[in-house]
Design a protein around this nucleic acid. Structure first.
Length: 283
DNA sequence: ACCCAGGGTGACG
DNA sequence: CGTCACCATGGG
């Protein structure tokens, strides 16, 4: 993918990446549409992203360019992956959902964010994460406006349950605290990076508030396991409607997903998920 | 007033 | 191994 860094702006030509899709598909929660430019905080920095013919990302310093290339998964050839998919339903979703791309996000932020996502909806997840960031994250200023970085593990580990409750975390507040404390020294996350999919999932399941679905989201969005296939209510609906009534058990769906979508089933999952939400598929 | 949302936990068979 | 009540919260 041809990229250029010019005047503090990282330009990705022929990117086929639509920020409106990328930031509204429930993988990242901290970017908002400001008159067509998506602004938010990632890796502790305020970032602006615009689509169109080319993807434009700013402000980008030269020494951070690789961080953002990785963040937007630019080293993976989505065109080839899409061309290899033959499943009729998936091809339909790909045609309708243009510009999808999976971000490679910070592990700690992703773990806490998807801990909050349990039995919750995307709009409210965003609100809760925003409040927690404002309460415990570093304040950043950009073009006269205030932004807040996602809290560091140490900052969240030192949080108190009442404040997290007042942020709207609800019954997840103790999970957030407990998990933040376990991740504080960084060794847990560093170890996960060395493990294969199955072992990494097994480890993540030890965290309080992390079950099979949340673990798969974390593995897919923060650890690059593109085969991870999170099974939420929307995915179960579209699978039931488009494929089979009998695919209910996680293991059965996983086997079906690998057989039907291949080793990038997680990317396929994101197309299916976004399509299902777009069409508001019901049971 | 009920139902739902990128579900998980703990108890009980 | 599977089932199930329960869990905070806000929007439809």
């Amino acid at each position: 993918m041809r990229t250029e860094l010019k005047d503090g702006q990282l330009i990705v030509y022929d990117a086929d990446i639509d920020p409106a899709v990328v930031f509204d598909c429930g993988q990242a929660f901290r970017f908002y549409d400001r008159d067509g430019v998506f602004k938010g905080v990632a890796h502790g920095k305020v970032l602006c992203v615009s689509g169109g013919d080319a993807l434009r990302i700013w402000p980008v310093e030269e020494r951070d360019a690789d961080i953002w290339r990785t963040y937007f998964d630019l080293d993976l050839d989505y065109n080839t992956i899409k061309q290899e998919w033959t499943d009729e339903t998936l091809v339909k979703c790909v045609a309708e959902v243009k510009g999808m791309r999976l971000l490679n996000q910070d592990p700690f932020e992703t773990i806490i964010s998807f801990l909050i996502s349990a039995n919750n909806n995307i709009k409210r997840i965003r609100k809760i994460i925003e409040k927690i960031s404002a309460a415990y994250g570093e304040k950043l200023e950009f073009e006269g406006e205030e932004y807040y970085a996602f809290p560091t593990p140490a900052a969240l580990a030192a949080a108190d349950e009442e404040t997290l409750m007042s942020c709207g975390a609800g019954y997840r507040a103790p999970y957030i605290l407990n998990t933040a404390k376990q991740l504080e020294d960084g060794s847990f996350i560093e170890n996960i990076k060395t493990l294969n999919y199955a072992d990494a999932k097994k480890e993540l399941l030890k965290l309080m508030g992390v079950g099979p679905k949340v673990a798969d989201c974390i593995l897919l969005f923060a650890f690059g396991h593109k085969n991870a296939f999170p099974k939420d209510v929307w995915i179960r609906r579209i699978i039931k409607q488009e494929y089979s009534e009998d695919l209910k058990k996680d293991a059965d769906i996983d086997e079906f997903a690998e057989r039907t979508f291949g080793k990038y089933a997680g990317i396929a999952q994101q197309y299916l998920f976004h399509y299902a939400r777009l069409k508001n598929i019901a049971y």
